[in-house]
């Protein structure tokens, strides 16, 4: 493909992400609720229920607790969209990760800004979760960098002939582990949960209502699609076959997370931090070291 062709392709996938991600994300959320219901022996809501919920939220009376909060939540959505757009444009993976952090910090600040005890506890827990998963995410980026001809560029990682997961099994397991935190699934749904049984008050989102809550929901859909895109990177090698495998694994991973969600109760925050860091060190760092020295001494990768 020519440079121009790549640019056009990148622009198309960005547009596709911006337009389609909320639908895909919402649909995934609907599937999640159906599967969860079946696991709990219920019939479950219609597949499109998440969309109905969001539409209903948009019609609620517009109230807020202060003049700043809604602005921060809107910024969270904007930067979440930028994160995914940069990802699907094939930019640097580190750039994408850091932009995601900024989006998440906007959410935390939104919760803090209300000065509500419930929201603030949720915000602090959200920060804790970020601290817990961040090392593993960065290690995953470094791992993908090492096996893709030493580039953080997502288009390079996808185009590289090496199938990441072959060299990075430990890092992949570690990434799936922290994906539970990122998708806000039990046992790590500490800062907020979609399940009514998990908390008395709604954690981080306590003071969000109506349109603000709808915006937050949509930004989660954007985020979830991007996260599954990250999983895809471990399988992509530029061939259609692996692309199909990658998408299939993304769906399996999502199903797995729903399953984990349903068989666990919420754990204490200590467990979230300890376990994620231990997994990052044992699976992530070890795998990274092995790949690192393998590539330095010239066998294995590249």
């Amino acid at each position: 493909m020519t440079a121009n062709g790549i640019n056009v392709a990148a622009a198309l996938s960005v547009v596709a992400y911006i337009v389609l991600a909320p639908f895909v994300g919402g649909l995934l959320a609907g599937i999640d609720r159906r599967i969860s219901a079946r696991m709990q022996g219920r019939f479950g809501p219609p597949l499109l229920q998440p969309f109905y919920d969001v539409l209903k939220l948009l019609e609620k009376e517009p109230v807020t607790v202060n003049r700043g909060q809604d602005f921060y939540v809107a910024c969270c959505l904007i930067f979440m969209m930028v994160t995914g757009a940069l990802f699907f444009a094939g930019m640097s993976l580190l750039l994408v990760i850091f932009t995601l952090t900024t989006a998440s910090v906007f959410l935390v600040v939104a919760a803090y800004s209300s000065n509500s005890p419930y929201a603030q506890v949720g915000a602090e827990r959200e920060l804790l979760q970020m601290m817990a998963y961040e090392p593993m995410v960065l290690i995953a980026a470094v791992g993908l960098y090492l096996v893709s001809g030493r580039s953080f560029g997502i288009s390079d990682i996808i185009g590289s002939p090496a199938v990441g997961v072959v060299y990075l099994p430990g890092i992949f397991i570690g990434f799936l582990f922290i994906l539970t935190i990122k998708l806000r699934k039990s046992p790590f749904d500490l800062s907020m949960s979609h399940h009514a049984h998990q908390e008395l008050v709604k954690g981080l989102t306590t003071e969000f209502s109506g349109k603000t809550l709808a915006i937050l929901e949509i930004s989660h859909w954007y985020e979830n699609v991007f996260l599954l895109g990250f999983v895809f990177l471990f399988f992509a090698n530029g061939t259609p076959l692996m692309a199909v495998v990658g998408v299939a694994v993304c769906l399996i991973a999502y199903f797995l997370e729903v399953f984990i969600d349903n068989v666990n109760a919420r754990m204490k925050w200590q467990f979230a931090l300890n376990s994620s860091w231990i997994v990052a060190l044992v699976f992530g760092a070890t795998n990274m070291m092995v790949v690192y020295f393998a590539s330095v001494s010239g066998w294995g990768v590249q």
Binding site: V105, V109, A111, L127, M130, M131, E134, I139
Partner: peptide, 29 residues
């Protein structure tokens, strides 16, 4: 790679201690 790990874990914690201060500053009482 050891240095890379030191930086990765250090940055993750950096996120936490600035984040909680930032939140406090943005709180509207």
């Amino acid at each position: 790679p050891l240095i890379v790990l030191l930086v990765i874990f250090g940055s993750s914690v950096t996120l936490f201690y600035w984040g909680k201060w930032l939140g406090k500053m943005a709180a509207i009482v």
